[in-house]
Design a protein around this nucleic acid. Structure first.
Length: 715
DNA sequence: TTAGGGTTAG
């Protein structure tokens, strides 16, 4: 019988379709010799029951243990293991491998200790597994002791063990780097030296050995070395596989080199590796990081069965490239395929809500997050903090931040930037100092956040101190944005000459955006002379931008220099420059309503005008005097402002007031800065309608309440 | 024994 099914049909045998005890015994005996035939949980359990019927259990328990371990049924494996009176090294080894495969790394290490206490030496099958646990747990000390153990048992020349040792050193190098928060690690860190030494001493190397060292180099930022190793590997007669390619593709994503990335893509097509799942998501990510998201979409469309990572990659690719609608479309498609979203899915998608200022969408995703139990994930929670802050709900952002079990640099920065945008600068500064104490070395984004807070609050001395500390204490070279924030602080504080000096002495060439900060400050502080100097620099760098032309023209008008203002307008006409339309939007009953300046297309336009007329009378009685300084050049527009409510933020605001119940907080967004007159008008409106009004503009949030604004000294 | 996707800014 045994010979019969071995020869004829092994699969049939594993279904136990016989009632004969003798036959059952025979089949069972053969299955014990071929445990790979039992390939499902139910089959394993069925077999286990047969085994108990036919044999005295202890003698066969090692075999069922192997079957359960192979199927990664940890609970059943432990039960089987506990019935073995004297487990062999092989039984220990199976259980340890099963724990590692199940991701229970601490358990695997404790089992290894217990096995060693019984006097069993490690073998070439076991050690790579234990080394993997060490790498995952970042247990450097134990990893080193395992290396010594490998040497003492003569396993240091074993290919699998050496590959695992190299992997351990590659991973632990990164961890040591994290520990040395205040010290810059040398480019070729000691961990990579150990890896190189091991690699060079190897008598036999396989593709895994090469891939491991290439991956280590990539992890340590040694991109040139990684790429030259790929060439060396080919010269040594080994063909790069999908592991090699998906290891090096992130290099081209990082350095934004789509040309080289495409070469890898072509190679993968020629080698038939492009259909591999890991390759697909690496390619999607590489193209997205190189801002070639259309290629990401093409790669995705060619994947036969995209897995969860592919979906997350394409969602991330869309959101990172500002394709928010596509991001949500892929998310819905993913849900439609009954694929469960993961923590990564939400941390990819949440920034779309923040960018769209869509509190409604953000809250919906927050609901998913809570139901899915992802609210303990630091990436997801940081994205939530950022979303609530960007959507105008700084209090909820803070509540989530305070409840976070662990904080990383990004969570601190998101919260600090939230305060920087909303106004309470002292909160931002306070958090930054707490972060320095609790989290260690701030990065350049964290400095940008705290400098933004200083600039909005005109804290010139603090801005200068943080700026100096960045280089002096943390060795971070300031970039354009840091300079811009300090220049902004000086400009807002009216220290225009100092701002000009500061920009002129920058160690990198100031861009038009930096000079525009000074021009904006000159406009506020009515300094036409310096404005001319700043505008000249801008016109050299970006001659076709209408914005600076308009600002300079307005500065001239305000100073009574009508001839100069007219000349600028003539230049604009000659260059064909037109004012970019301002746009504001507001979310009412889960629908976004957009308004451009002088927009008459909204179905409620006449209701809006009627309501504005009534409001205008009320705020005038409260003391509002229209200020049209910034539109003197445009008579037609001035008339519109006087007679209607031409500015987009006013249209959106009045629509919000007439569409929501009294007392409701109104949140709206504008694509450029709120104009001076609207800012004043909204303050009065907040009082007469008794509402809190939150306006997000290009630079920051404005909280209006009872005729006051959070940035009252802003202008 | 090796590989892919994530949050802050721009």
């Amino acid at each position: 019988m045994e010979k019969w099914f071995s020869r004829k049909n092994r699969r049939e045998a594993s279904s136990f379709q016989t009632n004969s005890t003798a036959a059952t015994k025979s089949i069972t005996k053969s299955l014990l010799q071929n445990p790979c035939l039992i390939n499902s949980q139910s089959r394993a359990k069925q077999f286990h029951a047969q085994l108990l019927k036919c044999y005295s259990f202890p003698s066969s328990s090692s075999s069922i243990l192997i079957i359960y371990c192979r199927l990664r049924l940890l609970h059943e494996s432990f039960r089987a293991f506990s019935t073995i009176p004297s487990p062999s090294r092989s039984s220990w080894s199976s259980l340890i491998s099963c724990s590692v495969a199940s991701g229970l790394f601490p358990l695997s290490l404790s089992l290894f200790h217990r096995m060693r206490a019984f006097g069993f030496p490690p073998n070439r099958r076991l050690l790579p597994n234990v080394l993997k646990s060490c790498a995952s747990l970042r247990n450097y000390k134990f990893g080193e002791s395992l290396h010594a153990c490998a040497i003492s048992f003569g396993l240091d020349s074993d290919l699998y063990t050496t590959n695992a040792l190299m992997n351990l050193y590659c991973k632990l190098g990164g961890w040591q780097k994290e520990l040395n928060l205040f010290e810059e690690m040398p480019k070729t860190s000691s961990s990579m030296d150990s890896v190189r030494k091991l690699f060079h001493e190897m008598t036999e190397r396989d593709v895994v050995s090469w891939n491991t060292v290439i991956g280590g180099n990539v992890e340590h930022g040694l991109y040139e070395e990684a790429l030259s190793m790929v060439k060396e590997m080919t010269s040594a007669g080994l063909r790069p596989d999908s592991f090699t390619l998906s290891t090096v593709l992130p290099i081209f994503a990082e350095v934004v080199n789509a040309k080289k990335g495409k070469e890898i893509h072509c190679y993968s097509v020629r080698s038939g590796l492009d259909i591999e799942m890991f390759m697909g998501s690496s390619l999607i990510d590489m193209y997205a990081k190189c801002t070639m998201v259309e290629y990401s979409y093409r790669v995705m469309s060619r994947l036969a069965n995209p897995d969860a990572v592919s979906w997350n990659s394409i969602i991330a690719a869309s959101v990172q490239n500002g394709r928010f609608d596509e991001g949500f479309r892929f998310f819905r498609e993913m849900l439609g395929l009954k694929l469960k979203p993961m923590a990564v899915t939400f941390s990819c998608l949440m920034p779309a809500c923040a960018h769209l200022t869509s509190l409604h969408l953000g809250k919906q995703l927050h609901g998913y997050i809570i139901r899915g139990g992802f609210d303990g994930n630091v990436f997801v929670e940081s994205a939530l903090v950022d979303m609530y802050a960007k959507c105008g709900n700084i209090c909820v952002a803070r509540r989530i931040f305070d409840a976070m079990p662990s904080l990383d640099m990004v969570s601190w920065t998101a919260m600090i930037m939230g305060y920087a945008l909303h106004g309470p600068a002292h909160e931002a500064l306070c958090l930054f100092r707490r972060m320095e104490m609790e989290n260690g070395k701030p990065n350049y984004v964290a400095f940008l956040a705290v400098l933004t807070a200083c600039s909005h609050a005109k804290l010139v001395d603090d801005a200068k101190n943080f700026f100096d500390s960045m280089t002096k204490d943390y060795g971070i070279t300031p970039c354009l944005e840091h300079y811009a924030a300090v220049a902004d602080a000086l400009g807002r504080a009216g220290k225009l000459e100092e701002a000009y000096e500061f920009i002129s002495k920058m160690h990198i060439k100031p861009t038009a955006a930096v000079w525009s900060i000074l021009l904006g400050a000159c406009s506020v502080h009515k300094n036409a002379k310096l404005a001319e100097k700043a505008a000249k620099k801008i016109f050299e760098l970006e001659p076709m931008d209408p914005g600076p032309h308009l600002i300079l023209s307005n500065i001239y008008s305000a100073a009574g220099k009508w001839k100069d203002a007219a000349e600028i307008r003539t230049i604009m006409r000659r260059k064909g420059l037109k004012k970019q339309p301002a746009c504001s939007w507001i979310e009412i009953k889960n629908k976004v309503h957009g308004f451009v300046a002088h927009d008459t297309s909204h179905p409620c336009y006449f209701k809006i005008i009627e309501a504005w007329e009534a409001l205008k009378d009320q705020i005038r009685r409260e003391g509002y005097v229209p200020n049209t300084d910034d539109v003197l050049h445009d008579i037609e527009e001035e008339q519109k402002i006087a007679n209607l409510c031409g500015h987009s933020e006013r249209l959106a605001l009045v629509f919000g007031i007439i569409s929501t119940p009294p007392g409701t907080t109104i949140r709206l967004t504008k694509n450029i800065r709120v104009c001076v007159d609207c800012h004043t008008a909204i303050k009065f409106i907040s009082k007469v309608v008794g509402r809190e009004i939150i306006v997000r503009d290009l630079n920051r949030f404005h909280h209006f309440k009872d005729n006051r604004c959070s940035c009252d000294d802003f202008w």
